[in-house]
Simulated scan of single mutants.
Amino acid sequence: MTCKTFFATTAAVLALSAGAATADTWRYAFEEAMDEVQGKFAQKFKEEIEANSDHEIQLFPFGTLGESADTMEQAQSGILQFVDQSPGFTGALIPEAQVFFVPYLLPQDEEQLASFFKNSKAINELFPPLYAEQGLELLTMFPEGEVMMTTAEAVTGPDDLDEVKFRVMTNPLLVESYRAFGATPTPLPWGEVYGALQTGIIQGQENPAFFIESTKMYEVTDHITRTGHNNFTTAVMANKDFYDGLSEEDQTVIADAIDAAFDYIIDYQKGLTEESLEKIKEAKPSITITTLSDEERQPFMDTADSVEQEFLEIGGDQAQEILDQLKADLEAAADS
């Protein structure tokens, strides 16, 4: 999408919504479709806000207002009141948020993950001031599912990724992570990924199973590999000036809606990964879905220390504090 086309589209969409909008209408954009995880979270948030206040929430799925960089700019400028965006894209604004791309840092156990995201001191106390510096009020972070590799050739170890052009989000640490895995990391906007896989410009990408299934990414890949290296993380934010200007009552309504949506989305995801993989296999019987053994994962796990050191170098002034607190929070979640 060109800048001219994007701004014309944005103006048209917002003009249409402005006709019925009032001062009590809030706009919320996210990076996925309505029936995907972020869309489900947003719909629950909307339901809670509208049931407990006079406010209306207008939802804008991915592509409605441009790419991720566009919606972030709109959230910072106040065109949008709320935005859901992965640290994969906000890492350039908030280097410390790249910590979520240190491989094998987050656990695979879903209950432990939920406890961590809900109770983490790093997320609830250390990150909000960093987001505030960028004009954003951090409302919550939540997991979206185990990240899996999709590739043209089978992957059983880092050697199989040699010279593979692997699409990554525009995040320096994710680039470093896949370089350490042996691949040739290739940052691309999401809107270009399907076509790039189809034409062979790239040969791999990563995402949770539900997203691979819903976007039909399996049509342009032959192998899905579960390396267990990460869980997709996303963050819901509000424009800081907007949020600070709200009454205490409205802030409480938002906090309660966020809590309800968080609990809802954690429950919604139970069994979603396996269900999505079954749908993929049904749609494309020839695809291989492989879960690497602990022994096969070890060479990938061995790269974690080097990526962690890279994070400490590029992750901002509070990188060490964030990493240490995150590890303490994960340990607490494991013991809970």
Results as ranks from 00 to 15, higher is better:
residue 39 G to Q: 15
residue 225 T to D: 04
residue 67 E to S: 01
residue 133 E to S: 06
residue 177 S to W: 14
residue 1 M to W: 05
residue 97 A to R: 05
residue 60 F to I: 02
residue 72 M to T: 01
residue 233 T to D: 07
residue 84 D to G: 03
residue 195 G to C: 07
residue 143 P to F: 10
residue 253 V to H: 08
residue 308 E to T: 09
residue 286 S to A: 06
residue 43 Q to S: 15
residue 199 T to A: 09
residue 17 S to C: 09
residue 159 D to H: 11
residue 75 A to T: 01
residue 302 D to S: 07
residue 49 I to M: 05
residue 221 T to K: 07
residue 172 P to G: 08
residue 291 T to V: 15
residue 103 P to M: 06
residue 117 F to Y: 15
residue 250 D to R: 14
residue 241 D to L: 04
residue 254 I to N: 03
residue 80 L to N: 00
residue 328 A to L: 13
residue 314 I to L: 09
residue 166 F to K: 10
residue 240 K to H: 10
residue 84 D to C: 02
residue 329 D to Q: 03
residue 163 E to L: 12
residue 141 M to F: 13
residue 297 R to D: 02
residue 152 A to W: 09
residue 116 F to G: 06
residue 117 F to G: 09
residue 236 V to P: 09
residue 313 E to H: 11
residue 111 E to C: 11
residue 130 L to I: 01
residue 42 A to Y: 01
residue 46 K to C: 02
residue 237 M to T: 00
residue 26 W to N: 00
residue 131 Y to G: 04
residue 236 V to A: 11
residue 185 P to R: 08
residue 138 L to K: 04
residue 198 Q to A: 10
residue 125 E to P: 13
residue 183 A to M: 04
residue 84 D to M: 03
residue 267 D to A: 14
residue 279 K to M: 09
residue 177 S to F: 15
residue 323 L to F: 14
residue 7 F to P: 02
residue 103 P to D: 04
residue 31 E to C: 01
residue 335 D to H: 14
residue 294 D to Q: 13
residue 134 Q to A: 05
residue 310 E to T: 15
residue 193 V to R: 08
residue 277 L to S: 03
residue 142 F to W: 13
residue 260 A to I: 05
residue 226 R to D: 09
residue 18 A to C: 11
residue 293 S to F: 07
residue 55 H to N: 07
residue 255 A to E: 02
residue 294 D to K: 13
residue 200 G to M: 07
residue 98 Q to V: 01
residue 118 K to G: 10
residue 103 P to S: 05
residue 280 I to C: 11
residue 151 T to H: 05
residue 192 E to C: 06
residue 322 I to G: 09
residue 254 I to S: 01
residue 163 E to V: 08
